[in-house]
Design a protein around this nucleic acid. Structure first.
Length: 924
RNA sequence: GCAAGGGUAGCUAAGAAAGGUAAAAGCGAUAGACUUAAGAUCUAUUCUCCACAGGGAGUACGAGGGUUCAAAUCCCUCCCCUUGUACCA
């Protein structure tokens, strides 16, 4: 007996794979396949989500490799970002050393999983050879007019004198010093993703889930409407607002600006409205931004003493500010039509602003004094001068055209999507290659001066942007005029790094270009991208945007980066939860029985694994205990890739047990070998072919759990087959194919078996098994089920008899006329489920009429449980032959003689129960 | 709030586009075989109740309605959970 030692085997094969460089790939004539997992942040410890992501990716990559593709399967690290900077602030760590050591740690852990990466292609964002090209791309964006500067709000902590990320604002306060977070304007860099909004809405030919496509469509939020110019009374400028309802223009009775709109501050300064404005402004700035746009929330606003002019009626209309208007969307102001917009209606009622009806429903009339809510549906225009009587849908275009002629508006398309703010006032990111010169203004760093490297002489105090503490960095000379100048201290959003890394993997070590066009054109685009659903919108949208811009720069020929997308679910685990306080126990309290605050007894509730709750399970622990193959098998069988996964330790035990059994099944020789072929060989061959088909089709769809399930079932059948007695040739075929099917899931143990069986080369490089479609006939399927059903029936009777040991089993095959009746019944059921009609059809046959009583009863029985009866049948003689063939199997299993009769030859009363595919049984 | 996804037996989980078997598979549990024992393995059972012949009745796929001969599956309402929400990645 060969011992299964996962640790030894896994180390051995990982070393061999590396030594023989079997996963390193080059461009070739073979068809390529690019499998990619989302660029991971290199946190020091591997977690279950990683294990799952990589196990899915590696299984799929290995499968595609066995299918004969030239598979590109690389790994790299999204290594810029806040955590390194926080480590520097909190424990004085050097961000670069800290990040490098994290990468080393996670790389070692990844290697233990047995992932078939081409490690020579490793890249990481904080490598100057990588971020140099971030900067290069930024300059290209700038040249194309796709990068610009504009003022925008940030969360600001005056205590730390620094910008706060949203996650650093907790309950409206700074997470570090607990000061109140404020909103502050800064001039920052943006990328014009809106220029590509229309193209980003096109998902033609992409093999993505509808859910992700819908989320992106909603995020982009295209809406057709018009820009309407409302001149500001007493000023030269006008506010250009966007509306989808120009048909209601005659009903505009006021304007509402977002309180944070910069003009508002100017207008109220030094007026009687200033103090009231300040009050509302501060209140709104603290209000949760989700709450602000809630339709249920109380509308608050004030008049600010300013007027606009309705461009079409020339009326002066008052300007208000309101909490429900958001600066980021549209112009940061809306035209208010209280009669036809519920939000405006409530606002108008509250502040006693006039309401003017401009649309009347087709079939009834609304009256101003009886209105309790706005009328938002369609109708005919009134109070709208020459447009009176027009249907409002038509009026949308007509009014817009009129505005256009007047030069006061035009039809346009608006997007909810905002341009991408890439400026970060942080150290640990890619520097934006810009120099500010007093004389020359904003000057891009010349291409030959790239990369602009992050300086080392910085201080991490938690106050301000650390880059500003580096004199050597800030002070430079202007590339144009050579006078002293200052560097931009903003760095780029890390989403920039992850927006083009998939190109770099194709050609990681080139120095002249970010990547060479012909090489990228061979490998791209990514055939299968795998990652968490949490990236459905931002990362995936930014990467698509970059792909389109770099295409327009002539860097490659692709419109889309990711041809197919798999979004995996999250991993949850039960954790103590207090229903009273509606909160989970924190890590320190997780062993308590009762809630610390209210004394309520904890119940267990499922929640996603997180460090803060301490309900994480370390995959390294599992790999130490059971081996990487078990860990992979467990995580892949636990749930389908897309669905969430509930953690349970028991599954791990099963995974390990299964692999041990599979190992001995495949490594130990069978005891009973026979020369001749029997029905058993035919049946196991059928099941094997069926399994190969199922596993192949499942893996094509990355339905890995289904594939594993089929393999488990085949393994169980194969084990039984081996215990009975085997034909050598059939046995070896099953053995080899099972190893091949298992390989993508559990690569190490299958390599070991491959070697034990003296097979040539690596199983990792072997070909995927094929199946013979000709063997998968309804006839084989019927016989396979017939065998299993007869066993089930014998078991049921045995149980009802309460008999432990059986003495004799008789199998009685139905008479010929029953086959005629049965096939007639099955074809009639296709047409009708009505028993009377079915009986009429059957009773037309003279031969059957004499059995009318029996047929009546049987039809009733079968109709009750349609699904229980097979449509396919074989002839009585074939059935007789089949049972004669499997007779030894039944005799062996139940330890008693088995006899087979035709119904006509049997004197038993129960023989009448026999039906096609369901023989009568007499057991004693 | 908005957007997307989900809720199936003690547990994990398939089934849902094409409505038709109390609903695959695995775990766990129970009983038996093997074993000195444990473990491993094998066999059977596992929604409830009844039945000493493969059966019958009831209840059931988050809750409540509806469509249909027939609903986990189609439609409506509600509840709960997860993810994202633009400076975490």
């Amino acid at each position: 007996m060969v011992e299964y030692d996962p640790q030894k085997i896994e180390r051995k094969w990982q070393d061999k794979w590396q030594k023989d460089k079997i996963f390193e790939v080059r461009e070739s004539k073979k068809e390529k396949y690019y499998v990619l997992e989302m660029y991971p942040y290199p946190s020091s410890a591997l977690h279950m989500g990683h294990l799952r992501n990589y196990s899915i990716g590696d299984t799929f990559a290995r499968y595609k490799r066995m299918r004969g593709y030239n598979v590109l399967y690389p790994m790299g690290y999204d290594s810029f970002g806040l955590p390194a900077e926080n480590a520097a602030i909190d424990h004085g760590a050097n961000p670069e050393e800290w990040t490098d050591s994290n990468i080393e740690a996670i790389k070692e852990q990844q290697k233990r999983i047995g992932l078939s990466y081409d490690w020579t292609r490793l890249i990481y964002s904080h490598d100057t050879d990588y971020y140099k090209w971030d900067q290069w791309l930024f300059l290209k964006f700038l040249e194309k007019g796709l990068a610009y500067r504009e003022d925008s709000y940030v969360n600001w902590c005056s205590g730390c004198n620094t910008v706060l990320a949203n996650e650093q604002v907790q309950g409206g306060k700074c997470w570090r010093c607990n000061s109140e977070a404020e909103q502050r304007f800064l001039t920052q860099w943006f990328l014009k993703i809106r220029d590509y909004a229309e193209e980003l809405l096109d998902f033609t030919d992409l093999n993505w889930g509808e859910n992700v496509k819908t989320m992106q469509r909603n995020w982009i939020g295209r809406s057709e409407g018009a820009i309407i110019k409302f001149p500001i009374l007493g000023e030269d400028r006008s506010i250009d607002i966007f509306t989808t309802r120009p048909d209601t223009l005659y009903g505009v009775t006021f304007m509402v600006f977002a309180p944070e709109h910069p003009w508002v501050g100017e207008w109220v300064k030094g007026t009687e409205y200033e103090s009231e404005f300040e009050k509302l402004y501060n209140e709104v700035m603290k209000q949760d931004r989700f709450v602000r746009t809630d339709v249920e929330i109380e509308k608050k606003g004030i008049f600010i003493g300013k007027y606009c002019i309705n461009p079409i009626t020339k009326e002066e209309i008052p300007v208000y500010i309101g909490n429900f208007v958001i600066y980021e969307y549209g112009a940061g102001a809306v035209m208010a039509v209280p009669a036809h917009d519920q939000r405006d209606f409530e606002f108008a009622k509250k502040y006693d602003i006039p309401i003017r009806i401009v649309i009347q429903p087709f079939d009834y009339e609304i009256k101003l004094d009886k209105m309790v809510r706005s009328y938002e549906s369609d109708g005919l225009l009134i109070n709208s001068e020459e447009f009176n009587g027009m249907e409002n849908r038509t009026a949308i275009n007509s009014i817009t055209e009129k505005l256009d002629k007047m030069g006061m508006g035009y039809a346009t398309i608006n997007y909810k999507l905002r341009d991408w703010l890439i400026s970060r006032q942080r150290y640990w990111g890619c520097p934006i290659p810009i120099i500010y010169c007093d004389d020359c203004g904003i000057v891009p760093v010349p291409y030959q001066d790239l990369p602009v490297e992050l300086p080392k002489d910085v201080e991490f105090t938690g106050k301000g942007n650390p880059l500003e503490t580096s004199e050597s960095y800030i002070n430079t000379t202007c590339p144009k005029c050579n006078k002293p100048a200052k560097r931009e201290t903003d760095t780029m959003d890390t989403f920039v790094d992850s927006s083009w890394y998939f190109f770099k993997f194709c050609d990681p070590h080139t120095e002249v270009w970010p990547y060479r066009k012909d090489i990228v054109n061979y490998w791209m685009n990514v055939d299968q991208y795998i990652g968490g659903i949490e990236h459905a919108v931002m990362h995936l949208l930014y990467a698509r945007f970059f792909t389109k811009v770099t295409r327009d720069l002539g860097l490659h020929k692709f419109d889309e980066p990711f041809q197919a997308l798999l979004t995996q679910g999250m991993i949850n685990k039960t954790h103590p939860y207090c229903p009273q306080c509606d909160s989970f126990a924190v890590a320190a309290e997780k062993n308590n029985k009762k809630c610390k605050r209210c004394g309520t007894e904890y119940i267990l509730k499922s929640v996603k694994m997180s460090k803060s709750l301490g309900n994480t399970v370390d995959p390294i622990g599992i790999m130490n205990d059971y081996g990487a193959d078990s860990a992979r098998f467990f995580i892949l069988f636990g749930a389908s890739p897309q669905s969430g996964l509930e953690w349970s330790d028991e599954g791990v035990g099963f995974a390990s047990k299964f692999i041990r059994n599979a190992f001995s099944l495949l490594s130990e020789p069978p005891e009973n070998i026979r020369k001749e072929k029997t029905i058993r060989d035919t049946l196991i061959t059928y099941v094997l072919n069926k399994t190969i088909k199922e596993v192949t089709e499942s893996l094509d769809k990355i339905a890995i759990r289904n594939a594993v399930n089929s393999i488990i079932q085949f393994t169980s059948e194969f084990t039984k087959y081996k215990l009975e007695s085997v034909n050598k040739e059939i046995y070896e075929m099953c053995e080899e194919n099972l190893a091949l099917l298992l390989h993508p899931i559990v690569p190490h143990v299958t390599e070991e078996i491959w070697e034990l069986k003296d097979k040539k080369g690596y199983i990792s490089l072997a070909s995927w098994p094929s199946y013979d479609e000709k063997l998968l006939t309804p006839d084989s399927d019927f016989k396979w089920k017939l065998m299993n059903n007869i066993m089930d029936d014998i078991n049921s009777i045995k149980l009802a008899m309460k008999k432990e040991i059986l003495e004799d089993i008789s199998i009685i095959i139905a008479e010929d006329w029953k086959y005629r009746f049965y096939s007639l019944l099955m074809s009639s059921i296709e047409k009708t489920k009505n028993q009377g009609e079915i009986m009429k059809i059957i009773m037309k046959e003279k031969e059957l009429k004499i059995h009318s009583k029996y047929i009546g009863q049987t039809v009733g029985k079968i109709l009750k449980n349609i699904g229980k009866y097979t449509k396919f049948t074989i002839t009585p003689n074939e059935e007789y032959q089949f049972f004669s063939d499997i007779k030894p199997i039944i005799e062996k299993k139940y330890g008693c003689p088995v006899n087979i009769y035709f119904e006509g030859d049997s004197k038993e009363g129960k023989a009448i129960q026999a039906l096609p595919g369901r023989p009568a049984l007499i057991i004693s």
